[in-house]
Amino acid sequence: MKNFQIIRALSSRTAVTNISKENEAMFIAGGTNLVDLMKKNVVAPDKLIDINGLDLKEIEFVKGKVSIGALAKNSQVAEDVAIKEKHPLLSLALAAGASQQIRHMATVGGNMLQKTRCSYYYNTDMPCNKRTPKSGCGAIGGSNRMHAIFGASDSCIAVHPSDMCIALAALDAQVLVEGPKGKRQIKFTDFHRLPGNTPEKDNTLEAKELITSVEIPDHNFTKNVHYLKVRDRTSYAFALVSVAAALDLKNNVINDVRLAMGGVAHKPWRLTEAEEFLKGKTVSEEVFRQAGDLAMKGARTYGGNDFKITLGANTITEALTIAASK
């Protein structure tokens, strides 16, 4: 790892001011992904701005929403009593990610910024457009069991690896950021982006912007929710496919529904078409099966991940079934 300077920021404003002057500076919070990437020489910042001293750790319930500070730890949010009660889907998704040690370290903001687990991205002597633009995509024609079936491009078929973000996408969260030009708000589903020709850009953050919090508006998805993560071992593995399912049921009729998938695209994949299909329908396995099939429309596979179409549809059906039975 290259050595670097480390500066401890004392406010979000000075953090942003500091980083603005640097080309090769990065914010660091939990470090669970960044330190790993630095050890692998995937990124090599000259300066780290340690933002752990910033006052961005609180989980605050205010009228109509909850605001979660960007520095709140993953375990802190997952185990927060009020989050469990009002946003159980988020709690379930967080608890499915990584290990408890990592959840104790990783922050909400950092989780949103974590890089893909694509092996070609991590191996610096392999082609990867995301890491080294114009070097090619190793995964296309290579090993792509983990890879995208939606929204990929000829430049990149990597997937976004987070569990938390799948739940936040489903729950219509908003991202609050602060940058050199001031503060702004981004719809969570617009925060991550598809690779297109610029896979090096994971999200729509502008240069030097800092995530300060995530807000989730109040909703009725407090009971019939499930986060189903399918992976190669029972725990401590990234998702092959995951589904965040939330149902608002009235007498077994679907009053409202949210569905999002992980492990299938460069961003959390919100299944709006399947949601529309389900609204107003009576709960049944058949309806859930149809929603699963509908959601897989337009999927494209690359050999190693052909199974994800069947698995994706089945996971949606299963997640909805479990959610409905709660």
Partner: peptide, 23 residues
């Protein structure tokens, strides 16, 4: 192995899975 390059692509503990306690 990615045979195009003749090199392993999951040579780490995150991608080469061994059983964990929950298994």
């Amino acid at each position: 192995i990615d045979h195009r390059f003749g090199r392993p692509i999951n040579n780490n503990f995150a991608d080469y899975h061994v059983p964990v306690n929950a298994d």
